[in-house]
Write a protein that binds this DNA or RNA. Structure first.
Length: 468
RNA sequence: GGCCCGUUCGUCUAUCGGUUAGGACACCAGGUUUUCAACCUGGGAAGAGGGGUUCGACUCCCCUACGGGCUGCCA
């Protein structure tokens, strides 16, 4: 086995919230590294000073944290490393793999226009300074361009896309250091990935073409090229590029909508990746199974139904304490009122009968409404309809019977059945008003479970309220 | 325009030349049931189109169509 530990990284631009697609990229990097005892690093690509904001950085860190994607060490600021980037650009200059280019934006535009006028189908800019004698250099601002090969081809050995060949004459001599001495993204990523010891670059396939130029920088510096893995982007349900009109695109939205983090991880892992028929799994299983070879090559669409189904599975198998903790966090994220100590206690007691019926936290809370609400209970219209005069009379009698009952499921069952039989009605006819009285809803957990959770005194009080 | 990538049920996908093309979500039907769920059983549902290669193609090659990406002194 190789002794070289795996190092991956997630490198978002802090220009907005953490996108669901970015979150999945981070997840893949995290799974790959963590599943193999490697490191997962975080780098904030904040070199675009106009668009980068500290708020966006905070939102990204928060989103990753919510998803449980922990990174090693401190997040690296790309902007802070600008001197190092410039240093490498000058080293390339010294090595003769880069040169000073004095061409102005106007000259470049003119070059392209001229080529197109000649009927060229494309116009890769060719700087006149590429092989110029330094003695002829003017005293003017210059950019540093990489001296890229003009013939031959560059092959990207990609773990997802296979070998991708790009003709070198399709690529221009990209600028590595701007005339204001700031590094370009193309240079910065390569230098940072190299310095951070990144062994596997797993990122969106919108960077696939860039990889060829970046590989040239590695070559120019004599550095080892990392393993590339360009993963397809996520699309909206309609197959179009994900955008705001698709609804939730920020991971924060999903948290605020009450999706459990474990369900999100499971769903996102399966979006564009598969291992046989594995569908539902916890994080440890995902860590053990995940590999680059299971990543698909075509963009996947978001399917909220499947997300919900996956989340339901995770909620049902969550441990109560952890679930409660996550529900409290959800309430805060959704800016809903926090639970009182009494509500927390009752919700905890009610979890066993609600957690396997909910796909999201708001749904779970709705199912647990009977435990969280307090008297007097105002029934919803559908529930109120069940509390007619006859039903109230029966409830009154039931109340009497319950006052001396042992509060066990077995005894409650026999009492309810006796009352129903005595009135010549089916159990459903009795359960319906009882449900309305206890919860004020027409869709609830079993009436027995509700009575057991809220207890004898509260049950009787609610029945008396309803019968009055 | 040029270059690069992609295309299996509605959706996520399995298949790595030979399968009645499998699973999951969703959907439909039935069952269970005190409601809503959950759960159980069954069902419909796919290889973009056209050429090759091969004894044999979803799998390999080419073309077309469609989708996406790149083509910046943005990242």
């Amino acid at each position: 086995m190789s002794s070289a530990p795996i190092v991956t990284r997630f490198a978002p631009s802090p220009t907005g919230y953490l996108h669901i697609g970015g979150a999945r990229t981070a997840l893949f990097n995290w799974l790959f590294a963590r599943g193999r005892g490697g490191k997962f690093l975080l780098r904030i690509e904040d070199t675009d000073r106009e668009r980068s904001t500290p708020e966006a950085t905070a939102a990204i860190l928060q989103g990753l944290t919510w998803l449980g994607l922990d990174w090693d060490g401190e997040a690296v600021s790309q902007f802070d490393r600008r001197d190092r980037h410039a240093e490498v650009a000058h080293e390339m200059l010294a090595r003769g793999t880069a040169y000073k280019c004095f061409s102005s934006a106007e000259e470049i535009a003119a070059f392209r226009a001229a080529r197109e006028a000649e009927g060229a189908s494309y116009a890769v800019f060719q700087s006149p300074w590429r092989d110029a004698d330094p003695a002829t250099y003017p005293d003017a601002p210059y950019a540093i361009r990489m001296k890229a090969p003009r013939s031959g081809e560059t092959v990207i050995r990609d773990s997802v896309q296979g070998n991708v060949t790009v003709r070198n004459d399709q690529l221009d001599d990209m600028i590595v250091l701007r005339s204001d001495h700031t590094p370009t993204y193309m240079l910065a990523v390569v230098v940072d990935d190299h310095d951070m010891g990144v062994t596997h670059v797993i990122r969106g396939d919108d960077h696939l073409n860039n990889a060829a130029r970046q590989q040239m920088v590695y070559d120019a510096m004599g550095w080892d090229v990392p393993v590339w893995a360009h993963i397809p982007l996520i699309h909206g349900p309609d197959g179009k590029k994900l955008s705001k009109r698709h609804g939730a695109t920020a991971v924060g939205d999903y948290q605020a909508q009450g999706y459990p983090a474990a369900g999100m991880r499971n769903y996102l892992t399966r979006l564009g990746w598969a291992k046989g028929d594995a569908e539902l799994f916890d994080t440890d299983e995902a860590l053990a199974m995940f590999g680059l070879d299971g990543i698909g090559r075509s963009p996947a669409r978001l399917d909220f139904k499947k997300l919900e189904s996956t989340c339901g599975w995770h909620i049902a198998r969550s441990e109560d304490a952890a679930l409660l903790h996550e529900i409290n966090a959800y309430l805060a994220a959704a800016q809903r009122p926090a639970l009182t100590p009494g509500q927390k206690d009752l919700l905890h007691k009610a979890l066993y009968c609600v957690k396997d019926r909910a796909k999201t936290f708001p749904e779970l809370l709705e199912k647990a409404h009977f435990a969280l609400t307090s008297r007097p209970i105002v029934p919803e219209p559908a529930a109120a309809a069940a509390l007619d005069t006859v039903s109230r009379g029966i409830l009154k009698e039931l109340t009497l019977r319950l006052q001396n009952a042992n509060w066990t499921k077995a005894e409650l069952e026999s009492i309810l059945n006796e009352v129903a039989t005595a009135h010549g009605i089916g159990f459903g006819k009795l359960a319906s008003p009882l449900r309305a009285a206890l919860a004020g809803r027409s869709a609830t957990p079993s009436v027995y479970d509700m009575m057991l959770v809220i207890g004898q005194d509260e049950t009787i009080a609610r029945l008396q309220d309803a019968a009055a």
